[in-house]
Each structure stands twice: as C-alpha cells, then as structure tokens.
Nucleic acid binder design. Structure first.
Lengths: 343, 343
DNA sequence: TTGTAAGCGTTATCAG
DNA sequence: CTGATAACGCTTACAA
C-alpha cells in the first residue's frame, strides 16, 4: 500500500483545517483563491488522494454499480458475445458519469441469496444480467426500494424495471422473413434449460405464430423445437434432428446454437442457403463474421447495456423520471444465409 | 435503498452494545452462547446486514480487487474470447476467497494516469490486463508498494510481478510444427499497434527464429509480417498480401486475425489445409469451433486469470511467498488446419 | 463475558 | 471565507 496521506496531513501542511481542504477538493466556490492554491500545492506535494471508502461512508454513496452475473453466464462465455458486448455498453456510460462496476456473482438462485448479496455490498444500484432468477425478485427489490434494472430476459407481464428487446416482434420478423421468401416448412429452435424454455423464447414463439397465422400456415407444436444450449450438445442434437426432419428454413435463438448449426451443416455438406435457410437472433456484428454471414434479428446488445445503465443512473442520482421498462424493436439484418425457397 | 438498520439498532434490540454485536457477527469465541443466540435473533428480526463500507474503513481493507482494463480491450470484445475467459479464471478464485472484482477502465496510457486511478479507488490490489501500458509502471508500483499482477503481456527482462505464457517457446513450437510437416515457406503474422509490435510477439519472433535456425532455414525479415489487429482491416490486409506472396504455412497471433484469415481463405476459395496450413495462438476451445478447426498454440487464458488472482491474493493477505513471475509453457493442440506440405 | 471509548477519513452543519 | 464538531457504521484495545 502507498503510505497513506490523509486530508489531515494536507490541512496541517497548508495551515488550514480539514474542512477547508475538503472544500478545496470538492471545488467549493466559497474558499479564497489564494488558500485554494496553497492547498492544491500541498496536495501535490504530499501526493494526497482522497480515500473513496471514507467518502462513501460520509456521503452514503459509492459511485459504484453492482453488476450481477450468474456463474453460468460467466462460464460459457467463449463464443458467446452477449456478456462482453453488454458490458461494453455499460462501461461506456459508467465511465462518462464517473461510476465504476463491481462484479457480483451469484451462487444460489433464489431471491433470498440474491438480496443477501445485494445488501452485503454497498453499491448504489444493481444491473442484473439475464433477468430475475426468481419471479418475485423484482417485486421484492421494488418493495425494498433497491435501485435495479434487469437486462435482457424479463417477464412481459411484470411491472419491474427492465430493458429488453421486443421478442414477440423478433419472432414475428424472423418468421415473416422466411415466409416472404416462400418457405413453408420452418422450425423455430429454442433453448431448453432444465426442461423449460426461457421467457424470451416464449414471446418469440408467440410472434412466430403470428407470422404463420397471417400467412395462413397452421401452427403445430412440432414447429417449435426444444434443444440444448451449449456448443457440444446442440451440435449433436441438431445432427440427429436433421436426420429425420429436414425443414427448408431454420430460426436459431442465439450465437452458440447458431455456430454449432453452421458447423454441423458444413460438416454434413448441407449447403446454406441453397438447401436450408438460416435466421438467427443475436449480435449482428458477430454474425457478420461467420461464413456464410447470417441473416440476423438484431439484438443490439450494446444498446441494452447502455440503456440499462442510463436508466439505473437516472434513478440513482434521482434525476429525471424514466419509464420503468424500455423495450426496443428489433431489426432484421439481411445477409447471405437466407434465399428464396426452392430456387 | 433499504431502510438502513445498523449495528446499533441490533445492539439496542438485544440489550447489548455494538461491541458485542460486532463480536457476534465476526464469530468471536469470547461471547456467551446465550447472548450470541439473542443477537442472531435480533439480526434476523431486524434484517440487519453489516455495511461493507464502514467495515472497510475500520479495517483498512475492502476485499475488492481492481481489474484494470483498457478501453481498447473492452471495445473489440466480440469474437475475442481473451477478456471473458481470463475473467472466468479470475472470478473463480475471487469467489472462493470472498473477494469481489471492481472494473477499472483506463482513459490515458501513461503511468501517471494509471497510478491516479489506482489510488483513487480503495481496492486491495490490482490485476492489470494486457500488461503495463508504460515501461516504468511496474517499477513505480513496486516502489509504492501497490500489490499488483500483470496478466499476459510483459517485458521478459523485467522483475515485475506477472503471469504469462512462454511466448518464445510458443513461437518455437508453432514454427517447429510446420517445419516438421515439411513446410519451408512460412510466415509469422504479428499484430501492429500504432507502428510497433507488442512484446509478446517480439518473443514469439525469437522462438520462431530459433525453430528456423535449427532446421537450417535462413531467417529473413520478410518472414515476419506486420498486420492490423482488427477484424475489418486484417481481412483486407491479408487479401492484398496473399495476392503477391503465397506461403505454404501461416502462423496467426490471435483469435481475431485468425478468424479474418479463415474467412478470407474461404471467400477466395483457398483450401485449408490443402493449399495452406494454419497455426494460431489463442484459446484452444475457441479454435475447436471454427471450420476447419485450427491447430492451436494454447494460451490457457483461464489459467492465466486463476493464477494471477491467486498470486495477488497471496500477496494481499500476506500469506505464503510466491515467485514474482509465473510463466507457463504453452502446448500445441493439433487439429485440422495443418498438414504435410505438398502432399 | 461484556461495556467504554477511541479511531478509520470524509463530509456537513453550524458558528464565527 | 474558515474553523470546530458532530456524524457515517464498524472494529478493537482497554477496562470492568
């Protein structure tokens, strides 16, 4: 540790009191220009830097935002740009406004273990990646007046504070795009975690269904296929799946499953888009760099991060009011993985 | 904010003083079992959780490690698994030992702006990703007794605290692998940032040179090619480069340039490994999922993160002594991107 | 076994 | 404009 020089040292060195030094470093107008100079001089001389912890204690604020990430999420990061991309958005805003990010990782899954973490650390607010682990979490946090914003997944019914993409619309756009290209035999692939599918996919299914309906294609359960979410298992799942069912269009729900699908099709010699058209949800920048590049329902993950942080800081600093939830319409980025059916 | 219930509230509620409550929550042995029960009861009842800031101030320790990341690094994260992977290693250890990670991002590049950041935040130590931005940084930090560990890049001559891979050996292994396969016309591609190449590549060049020497192949400057490091520019650089020079073996220095190379070769219809063999430095897991999968000189990035954190915490907690630098020998993972020359 | 009281380094409220 | 002095919430000798 650097030898600690405190505000008192500076005060004595420049023949004033702590109060004055405090005023100087906080750029208070009510301090004589000359003493201000003297104090700054002393600060330089002694190499003083204010102790953030002490300041936090006195002010009751840290200028630190806790970012809650599940172990799971930080685990399968290779090839999954969600985490780093959202982080980029978050830090951009944080830096602008002089806030720092404290990484908080979860062990348990229940609201209890959540709130425990939440309170143990003195941070000014929470950004919760991947949405609430527990349905009641939002309600509990609201009740305890804990400032927070969920990023990504969310319950569309809930009144909780979150930022997300309009997944229903996304599912609709993806389906419509393929239908417009003449595809009739389309599958929506959704990740299955512990036997259930995530809320954002539930919404996408609804949108997909709407697109089918508009085109007069009857919806059947088999058009939505549950699959594993990791690289390894999704690859083998798709391998066996495509052996007995060969749609002309496939909608994938994220970067990882899209990559394994792309790899599998290449390995099996199935041409994209000639034999099968692919649409993926996810980061458009990422899918630009795959081969073939993929038609993408854009998630704008960086925007998610930026917006969530802005919402949270507005709330924390008690500034302007912002609507509790912000949902962005997705856009489709057309690339080389889709073409007219059967041409 | 949750209504703050302090140690004093608990004390009054359970008819003891702050001191006793403090002892209870710190699990001190010198407190009566029955009052201990009473106090815990009160804690539960009131929903008390200790304030970390206050505790930090009193103890002079935070249980927080600052992770210094350059803006640049957090910017080009898509497709670059270094950051998330090293983070995984770091958080694994941090969680085990009850530490948290504070993300610190750099604006300037000089040691001055570095140390300023370093001191403004009260953290117990620093993990500096990508190595020192300034040659003197390590020395300065050492002099100021700031606990730190550099991760990744480093000056091999320096006495500073860092963990890294043996890049000279890596360059040697990569070169030798291709040479053993009969290749004679090999290029080592190294990233160029602001006109100069990074230290870890300087070492790789040395190793590459050693491999050539052993095989009796004369070294020439043109065998080492400087190129841009981002997706976009590296793609176009390679495009023009390969028009006028067509080696039989290429060594790429990271994930991003490898991807753009792979994409380019595919786009141009140049077969890997039939027409050209590829070796890359980087994360073996990542390169397993490219097509073709790439022969990789493994960086074990997660190991870097884990080890760095362990070193730092040993130093912070003043436990056992650990050598200031730890360097790990790389391994080569053989995959489908290399084959015998001309067969 | 428990209480008292002095810090830890700031900020903030009064006076002067 | 500047100085005392009391917070902020917790730990820790030192007493009792």
């Amino acid at each position: 540790m650097p030898k600690k020089v405190t505000i008192l040292d500076v005060a004595q060195f420049s023949n004033v009191t702590k109060s004055t030094v405090s005023r100087v470093i906080n750029d208070s107008p009510l301090v004589n220009e000359r003493t201000k100079q003297r104090v700054w001089q002393a600060i330089k001389e002694l190499g003083y830097t204010p102790n953030r912890t002490a300041r936090s204690l006195a002010l009751g604020k840290n200028h630190v935002i806790g970012m809650v990430v599940s172990e799971q999420q930080i685990s399968d990061v290779v090839l999954n740009p969600f985490f780093p991309t959202v982080l980029k958005g978050i830090t951009t805003v944080a830096n602008q406004q002089g806030y720092n990010i404290l990484l908080l990782s979860l062990s348990g899954q229940d609201a209890q273990s959540y709130t425990e973490i939440l309170q143990r650390h003195t941070v000014d607010g929470f950004l919760i990646l991947g949405g609430p682990s527990d349905v009641n979490l939002g309600r509990d946090l609201d009740r305890m007046k804990v400032p927070y914003v969920f990023i990504g997944k969310h319950d569309p019914e809930a009144q909780h504070s979150f930022v997300s993409t309009d997944n229903e619309e996304g599912g609709y756009i993806a389906g419509k795009h393929l239908i417009d290209l003449g595809h009739r035999n389309i599958r929506l692939m959704v990740g299955e975690v512990k036997g259930s599918i995530l809320v954002h996919n539930v919404e996408r299914i609804a949108g997909f269904r709407r697109a089918l309906g508009e085109a007069g294609i009857p919806f059947e359960d088999r058009l939505v296929v549950k699959m594993p979410t990791d690289m390894e298992n999704s690859y083998y799942f798709l391998k066996t799946y495509l052996e007995r069912d060969r749609p002309s269009g496939l909608i994938l729900s994220n970067e990882v499953t899209s990559m394994s699908c792309l790899n599998l099709l290449l390995d099996e010699g199935i041409a994209v888009p000639d034999e099968i058209s692919l649409v993926s949800f996810g980061d458009p920048q990422f899918f630009r760099n795959t081969r073939p590049s993929l038609t993408t329902v854009s998630q704008s993950v960086e925007w998610l991060g930026r917006t969530a942080m802005e919402m949270l800081l507005k709330r924390v600093t008690g500034g302007e009011w912002l609507p509790p939830k912000i949902i962005r319409k997705p856009e489709i980025v057309l690339r080389g993985s889709t073409k007219k059916c059967g041409v």
